[in-house]
């Protein structure tokens, strides 16, 4: 054991408690540490402020249920663009690239992802502590607990993108199989994260991982649509 060059800290080296607030909020701390952190909170305005913001995020996240309906129906726009007739074909000699062709169809889906990413960023910025503590140690606490995009909208978009990919890859069931295998892996990961979140609803890191997996699934389908082609050849 090299105790000279390894030492343990709670994360933030200026305030060792700030990195434990998320666990405190989750009820994960042992009783002794819970008492200690409560004593610390009584005299530390910065940690109290961070804890208040964390509670706000958790409350907002709880209000935004995973199965909540979309606040605005974006699907008609997506659907119209996605339902053009499809033919398997390589890219043309001239004219716009298929990547460009795919853009209008995926615009609405991209807006969803962009909105979600923006929300993650905004919430993250709001929760960043103003102290001089190195960002290294603060992340586990200040990571945002962003809302998950409305499930119905997301699943409909995924289903349509999937349909497009299947239609375009009729000559290559292998790639379809590969895609499905990887989508299943992402579904499994999402299921694990959701299961864990049901036990620890305030865990910002878990929520971030869940959103990351959802984004990855959408991005995978978008890339498959963009790289396979439609139209004549």
């Amino acid at each position: 054991m090299n105790r000279e060059d390894t030492r343990v800290e709670g994360g933030c080296r200026e305030d060792p408690w700030v990195d434990r607030l998320s666990e405190y909020l989750d009820g994960d701390l042992p009783a002794r540490e819970r008492l200690e952190i409560e004593a610390h909170l009584a005299g530390c305005a910065a940690c109290t402020a961070v804890l208040r913001e964390l509670r706000d995020v958790v409350a907002r996240a709880d209000r935004m249920r995973l199965d909540s309906p979309p606040t605005r129906d974006l699907w008609p726009g997506v659907s119209v663009r996605l339902r053009r007739p499809l033919r398997l074909a390589p890219w043309p000699l001239s004219g716009a690239s298929p990547l460009r062709w795919a853009v209008p169809r995926l615009a609405a889906a991209a807006v969803l992802v962009a909105c979600c990413a923006a929300l993650v960023w905004v919430v993250g910025e709001r929760l960043r502590p103003a102290s001089t503590a190195p960002p290294v140690a603060s992340a586990p606490v200040v990571a945002p607990a962003p809302p998950v995009p409305a499930d119905r909208e997301y699943e409909t978009t995924v289903a349509e993108l999937r349909r497009v990919v299947h239609a375009r890859l009729t000559l290559d069931p292998h790639v379809v199989e590969v895609l499905e295998k990887n989508l299943a892996a992402l579904d499994l990961a999402m299921s694990d994260y959701q299961d864990a979140l049901s036990r620890q609803p305030g865990d910002a890191q878990l929520r971030s991982r869940l959103i990351g997996a959802r984004d990855r699934k959408l991005e995978l389908l978008r890339r498959a649509v963009a790289l396979t082609t439609e139209g004549g050849n």
Binding site: T6, R7, E9, G10, E33, V136, A139, R209
Partner: peptide, 28 residues
């Protein structure tokens, strides 16, 4: 050898510092 915090194995979420701790390494 790495000195882990109490209850680390139960919570499976912990941090420790090597040397000056200036770089950040997240393992998940």
């Amino acid at each position: 050898p790495v000195k882990l915090p109490d209850e680390a194995s139960r919570h499976r979420r912990f941090s420790f510092v090597l040397g000056s701790g200036s770089a950040r390494l997240d393992l998940e």
